[in-house]
């Protein structure tokens, strides 16, 4: 796309500005987390890492981490499986109710999450299930597994259906086609969907709010402390949660990169 140099520069600056704005509040939290004072005011006079130490030692925070982790891991695994098959139904196969299915999947994404959470609470209540972190997994799945499906579907759209037909034509059974062709080709999509699922579940608050019962996830605790009963631990716990996300993201990116490298060396052998 041709464009004048000045317009290009202006557009680039605009992009930089947008990113700056997106990260500004996170930077503020970062500063706040290393302020020594119990009641925070800027500019920060003395820096300390003591809140991090307290946060890590706190058994409450450890419980929160553990709950968040359990929920996110379970959501990730289920979303990957559901999303893999869902994406095939969404993008690959021409079946009668595909159009309805595509629209149905999108609906939960469009729905207000707090309302989804409340509706689930009523539903669990009607079923006589006592909410815990396990019910929160179900709640997260409503919103996250459709997103996982969409991510994998993008990959599923990208590959030529005749690849599967060719394999079948050469004698492959349905299962062999999945194992030899569909699976390997969709695998990168499945991994990135898994990564998304984990991170979205890890950071989710509105769905957890009503569905965790007596258990509590990190974002829930942070919200409660922000709205009432402020704790100086809030910024440091927030940053810890962000760092976990980033570490995981990096880990995921490395895994993806390894998968690609491996498939290249495999075929280059």
């Amino acid at each position: 796309m041709k464009m004048s140099r000045s317009a290009r520069i202006a557009l680039t600056l605009y992009g930089v500005l947008a990113i700056f704005f997106l990260y500004l509040p996170i930077i503020s939290v970062g500063f706040a987390s290393v302020s020594k004072a119990r009641y925070l005011t800027f500019p920060i006079k003395r820096y300390a890492t003591k809140w991090y130490g307290k946060a890590i030692e706190s058994s409450t925070v450890q419980d929160l981490l553990w709950t968040s982790l359990s929920v996110a891991l379970l959501v990730t695994v289920i979303s990957m499986v559901v999303g893999f098959f869902g994406a095939l139904a969404f993008a690959r196969y021409q079946w009668r109710f595909r159009g309805v299915f595509q629209k149905l999947i999108l609906l939960p994404i469009f729905f207000p999450q707090a309302v989804l959470g409340l509706a689930l609470l009523l539903w669990f209540n009607a079923l006589g299930i006592i909410p815990s972190w396990k019910t929160a997994v179900v709640a997260h799945l409503v919103w996250i597994s459709p997103i996982a499906t969409l991510i994998i579907a993008i990959r599923a759209y990208g590959f030529d259906p005749s690849l599967e037909e060719a394999a079948r034509d050469m004698g492959a059974s349905t299962w062999t086609v999945m194992k030899e062709i569909t699976g390997p080709l969709l695998w990168p999509g499945v991994v990135s969907a898994g990564l998304f699922a984990f991170l979205l579940s890890w950071g989710n608050f509105p769905l957890s709010l009503f569905t965790t019962g007596a258990d509590s996830t990190l974002p829930e605790w942070l919200y409660a402390k922000m709205v009432s009963g402020y704790s100086p631990l809030v910024p440091s716990v927030g940053i810890l949660s962000i760092v976990t996300s980033i570490v995981l993201l990096l880990f995921g990116v490395i895994v993806m990169w390894l998968i690609r490298a491996r498939s290249e060396t495999l075929s280059a052998r």
């Binding site: 030529d160 005749s162 037909e165 394999a167 079948r168």
Partner: peptide, 16 residues
Amino acid sequence: ANRRPTCMVFQSLALF
């Protein structure tokens, strides 16, 4: 198709 002793070269070639 997978149990017929015939085979096709696809328009897209369908190379994996």
